[in-house]
C-alpha cells in the first residue's frame, strides 16, 4: 500500500469519525449531507429540505418548469438575498454612525479611516439601488407570467406592499449620509408629500419632524430606516413566502 493510499484511508477514517460522531449528529438532522453515510437517494433529498430550518422555506419538490432559470431568473430569491446582504452591511454600518450633526463626519471617517468602511458603505448603497431594481423586475416577471391570477391575487397585493416598503427603506436611507445630495433629495421627496389633499401640511410636518429637513428629520429617518421599516417588511415577507407555498408554489407552466 502506497503512502498516498494510506493517507487517503486515514483521512477518510477521520472524516467518517467526525461526521459520524456525536457532535455532527446532534447539529445536523437525519438526511443532512454533513452527516456520515449520506447517499443520494430520494428519501435523503427530501430530508435535506425538510430537516433544515433554513431550507424548509422550500417545498420538498417543485414543479419541473419552475427550476428553469429562464422562468423566474431567481428574481424573488435575489430580492430576499439582497435584503439579507443589506441587513448585514447595515448592522455593520450602525457601529460607526450617529444620526446627529456628526453623521457627515462619521461617514467621512468610515470612508477614510475604518478598515473596509468604504467597501461596506458602497455595498450597502449599490445593494439598495439593486434591490429596488430587482424587486421591480420580480414584479414585472410575475405580471408577464400572469402569476397574480387566482389563487394568487392576494399575494400580489402583499408584493406591491413589499415594493412600497422597499422604496420607503431606500428613501429613508438616502438621507443618512447627511450630505447635500441626501438632504435635497429628501426635501424634494418630502415636499411631494406636502401636496396630499387636506392633510398635506401635517404629513410633511410629521415626515420632517418640522418644517424642513433638519437633524431631527435625520433621527426620524434613521429610526424608520434601521428599525421600523425592516420590522414591517420582515412581517410582510413572511406572509409573502408563506402564501407562495399555500397558493400552490410556483405558478405556471404557461
Amino acid at each position: 500500500m502506497s503512502l498516498r493510499d494510506r493517507l487517503k484511508e486515514t483521512r477518510a477514517k477521520a472524516s467518517d469519525g467526525f461526521r459520524g460522531g456525536k457532535l455532527m449528529s446532534s447539529i445536523f438532522r437525519p438526511g443532512s449531507p454533513f452527516r456520515k453515510g449520506y447517499v443520494d437517494s430520494p428519501r435523503n433529498r427530501s430530508y435535506v429540505v425538510m430537516n433544515n430550518v433554513l431550507y424548509h422555506l422550500h417545498p420538498v419538490k417543485v414543479k419541473r418548469h419552475g427550476v428553469r432559470l429562464s422562468y423566474t431568473l431567481c428574481l424573488g430569491g435575489l430580492s430576499f438575498f439582497l435584503f439579507i446582504v443589506l441587513t448585514i452591511t447595515g448592522i455593520w454600518l450602525m457601529f460607526y454612525f450617529r444620526p446627529t450633526e456628526l453623521a457627515y463626519v462619521d461617514i467621512q471617517n468610515l470612508q477614510t479611516t475604518i478598515a473596509f468602511g468604504s467597501l461596506v458603505r458602497n455595498m450597502h448603497r449599490w445593494g439598495a439601488h439593486l434591490m429596488v431594481l430587482v424587486v421591480f423586475l420580480h414584479m414585472s416577471r410575475v405580471f408577464y407570467h400572469g402569476a397574480y391570477k387566482a389563487p394568487r391575487e392576494f399575494n400580489w397585493v402583499i408584493g406591491v406592499i413589499l415594493l412600497l416598503l422597499t422604496l420607503l427603506l431606500s428613501f429613508t436611507g438616502y438621507l443618512l449620509p447627511w450630505d447635500q445630495l441626501a438632504i435635497w433629495a429628501v426635501t424634494v421627496g418630502g415636499n411631494m408629500a406636502g401636496y396630499v389633499p387636506v392633510v398635506g401640511a401635517q404629513v410633511k410636518f410629521g415626515l420632517f419632524a418640522g418644517l424642513e429637513a433638519t437633524t431631527a428629520t435625520l433621527l426620524r429617518f434613521y429610526v424608520l430606516h434601521v428599525l421600523f421599516f425592516p420590522f414591517i417588511i420582515v412581517i410582510f415577507m413572511a406572509v409573502h413566502f408563506w402564501r407562495v407555498r399555500k397558493d400552490g408554489g410556483i405558478s405556471g407552466p404557461l
Binding site: 438632504i183 433629495a185 421627496g189
Partner: peptide, 21 residues
C-alpha cells in the same frame, strides 16, 4: 464605484437642480 458623498448638508444652499432618488 465609489458611492457619492458631496459636501455636508446645508439647508441654506440649494443645489440646482435638486433631484430625488
Amino acid at each position: 464605484l465609489q458611492a457619492p458623498l458631496l459636501e455636508e448638508a446645508n439647508p441654506n444652499v440649494t443645489p440646482n437642480p435638486a433631484k430625488a432618488p
